[in-house]
Design a protein around this nucleic acid. Structure first.
Lengths: 240, 240
DNA sequence: TAAATAGTGTCTATTAGACAGTATCGT
DNA sequence: ACGATACTGTCTAATAGACACTATTTA
């Protein structure tokens, strides 16, 4: 790639539109999901100014002039979502650019999906975890973005090891199963689930620790393994 | 959604950056793939002006002020890629926003993936189909974008019926199998493939037509069925 | 002891992969 | 007839789903 110092860059001349290349603000919006209190939750804040005053909104922010998109997402996660340095898996979700999605001015928004363990929401950043089932009235097209993020998360649990991103650093097979059950919204057979995830190469790394429990046999604790893709995948069957 | 006529829209005031919201040109770039001459090919043109003079490039264009992203992709497909009205499956791929990806000025590019049957490339638009294996030197980050598109296409053949998007309206099971073989780059057993796709509910709609051939039994012709997702998916095994 | 949770083994129906064999065309 | 391609059936190994059973803790 040829390098230009920023101030000396020649201005862009598009082939068929040499004079008029419209520019728009580009924002990054974050769908941060977690599993807590037996529900799939999203990290949101309540808007206190127009438009959409009182509605729940995703955390977001505008990209800076020389900032990469992943860097912008990390910055929004730290500064706006109030989760600096948290172990959140971030990946680009989709870009939303319908002209009237922000009534004030056209904004193109690159949405990122974040999968997080059950972290405390930052009161300083005025964020809170809300069950996604109750987030029916949201600002802008944030409900659509959130639903797209949830569907991506559901699909990714099938063929990747990302379910562990919802868990703390050390977790039990039952913890992981509850993540799958809540994200997919259906019960899974504990014994078959156990067999599957422990036999999937690179999914779980055993540790020497166990849990202490109110009753019942202590469970082995595992860490996330190196595998990103699962072969074969954990398919949601069609039944039910 | 509250409606404002465009001219009366209040300007955007971001929470923490009330004065300075940088704006950037947003483009749409198209990775249009097809299968022809036993190879996976991409629709590209050879740049005749700087930067990257002489390099192959994807077709692209800037979004207009009040144009939706899918509409921009359709317009670029028609006007720049030279495929107006063609039966091309278009879906958003990913957004690329690294600040120096265009050496002239920062451009955020929303890439779309297009899957097309074997159509003639428009000479008027100076486009041509090139085998992706030979597209090693491309302009900007277009090679990375193309590779991301190819990987998306490979994955989508597993769990959707999109392989048929590479075929003409009526096609044989062998046609479809050759698509899979070329996109995945590995031979498939014709008999097992036949069994799988004909038994997958909603994948193929039988017609009353058959092919005429140079030799060999004529094959039944099928049309794309209504199913979008395949249950169970056609998994690429790990072998080989 | 009972209750609760963790983990293992076993059976069966389904499926993937391999491949023999049949069907129907052109020459 | 023969080669070529389309299609069907069959065997086997692997897997998913169902579920009986054992293991280890707290109360």
């Amino acid at each position: 790639m040829i390098e230009f110092p920023p101030e000396s860059r020649p201005k862009l001349i598009a082939c068929n539109v040499p004079d008029m290349v419209p520019t728009v603000p580009v924002s990054v919006d974050l769908v941060v999901l977690t599993v807590r209190s037996q529900a799939l939750c999203a990290l949101v804040w309540r808007r206190d100014h127009p438009p959409y005053t009182g509605c729940w909104a995703l955390s977001g922010g505008f990209i800076k002039l020389d900032e990469d998109l992943p860097a912008a997402a990390e910055r929004v996660l730290a500064e706006r979502a109030g989760l600096p340095g948290a172990p959140v898996h971030l990946e680009q979700l989709q870009t939303y650019g319908y002209p009237d999605r922000d009534p004030r001015e056209r904004v193109v928004s690159v949405a990122y999906l974040g999968l997080a363990p059950d972290l405390p929401a930052s009161t300083e950043a005025h964020m809170s975890w809300r069950a996604v089932a109750e987030l029916t009235e949201m600002a802008f097209d944030h409900r659509r973005i959130m639903l797209d993020g949830i569907e991506r998360a559901r699909a990714k649990l099938e063929y990747t090891s990302l379910g562990a991103a919802f868990c703390p650093p050390e977790f039990t097979v039952a913890d992981l199963r509850r993540v799958y059950e809540i994200v997919w919204g259906r019960p899974l057979d504990p014994r078959n689930f156990h067999r599957k995830v422990t036999k999937a190469e690179g999914f779980l790394l055993p540790t020497s620790h166990t849990t202490t429990r109110d009753g019942g046999r202590p469970a082995k604790l595992y860490r996330r393994g190196p595998a990103e893709l699962l072969h074969p995948p954990m398919l949601r069957s069609l039944k039910e």
